[in-house]
């Protein structure tokens, strides 16, 4: 193990490490902690200029209450959910199919189709912006959640295919051969042999895509406009315009907007990291 395990080093170094660890974390998360502090301070504290003083009283309930009951925030949150969940489902379905096709079968254009997905996934959003916006307008889906979902599914399929294909390649091929010898139809091999083995990959992809899509901002401003269809990332900016100097409300709003992917991460940590670091180890 590198660096040298702490329990094999001198007592002084051990103590130094144990003290530095929490300090480093505190420093690292300082900007966030500041926002958390802001979100429980009453408005009066900001008016009197006491930005960094301890809250004169705990105003958390009041601030979060206003975010939830007197603003458009719940609506934006609901939009985010209605955009993110269908995208996750669509991506997982499409990419388990493409991943299966590219991972199991050998045909001449296989690698080129695979590279098309990989390359497309790296493309800057701006080169797609005008044509995709036009297409969405033509389909009559501008400023709808469906329009956003369709684009997200299509774009994320690139990354998901890369992920699924590499995962399937690592499965024991003998399983598929055995099934073929038994004369099982190919689609049944997909359904009964490969799909059950893909569950961990699907879970990893689901949490990753959830986070990516929840945090998307660019496409939200390109393809949607109003509170009826914009997700929470775009919502928070109009919130920002509305409450520019109301730091307590902005902080509470930001925390609410950031919470779902954070919760997802802590609940599904193992899958999340497995997905994110795929390929980091040979």
């Amino acid at each position: 193990m590198f660096p040298t395990p702490i329990e094999k080093t001198s007592r002084t170094w051990q103590i130094t490490y144990q003290t530095f660890l929490p300090l480093a974390l505190l420093l690292w998360l300082m900007p966030l902690l500041a926002v958390a502090l802001f979100s429980i301070k009453p408005e009066a504290d900001f008016v009197s200029g006491g930005y960094w003083s301890l809250p004169t009283y705990f105003a958390g309930l009041e601030n979060y209450g206003r975010v939830f009951f007197q603003s458009d925030m719940p609506r934006y949150l609901l939009n985010s959910v209605l955009i993110t969940i269908p995208t996750v489902i669509g991506c997982v379905i499409l990419s388990s199919m493409t991943g299966f096709a590219l991972g199991i079968y050998r045909f001449r254009s296989n690698i080129w189709i695979f590279f098309m997905f990989v390359a497309g996934n790296f493309v800057p959003f701006q080169i797609l912006m005008v044509p995709v916006r036009d297409l969405t307008l033509d389909l009559g889906l501008y400023n709808t959640k469906t329009g956003l979902v369709l684009f997200h599914i299509a774009f994320q399929t690139g990354f998901c295919t890369l992920f699924m294909r590499n995962f399937i390649r690592a499965l024991p091929f003998a399983l598929i051969e055995a099934a073929r010898v038994e004369g099982i139809a190919e689609w049944r091999i997909f359904w009964y042999v490969v799909l059950p083995l893909m569950k961990p990959a699907m879970a990893a992809l689901a949490v990753l895509i959830f986070t990516f899509i929840w945090n998307d901002y660019f496409w939200a401003v390109v393809l949607t406009q109003g509170a009826e269809s914009q997700p929470v990332t775009a919502g928070i900016t109009s919130f920002n315009a509305q409450y520019r100097a109301a730091y307590h409300l902005m902080s509470a709003g930001s925390i609410v907007a950031a919470l779902p992917p954070v919760a997802m991460f802590f609940l599904m940590q193992k899958h999340f990291i497995a997905g994110l670091t795929l390929g980091a180890v040979k």
Binding site: P31, L32, A34, V35, T211, W214, N215, Y217, T233, I236, T237, N240, M250, S254, A257, A258, P261, V262, M264, F265
Partner: peptide, 11 residues
């Protein structure tokens, strides 16, 4: 894990 929008506001 948190959105870049929130990171931007925080900074």
């Amino acid at each position: 894990v948190i959105s870049q929008i929130v990171v931007g506001l925080v900074f």
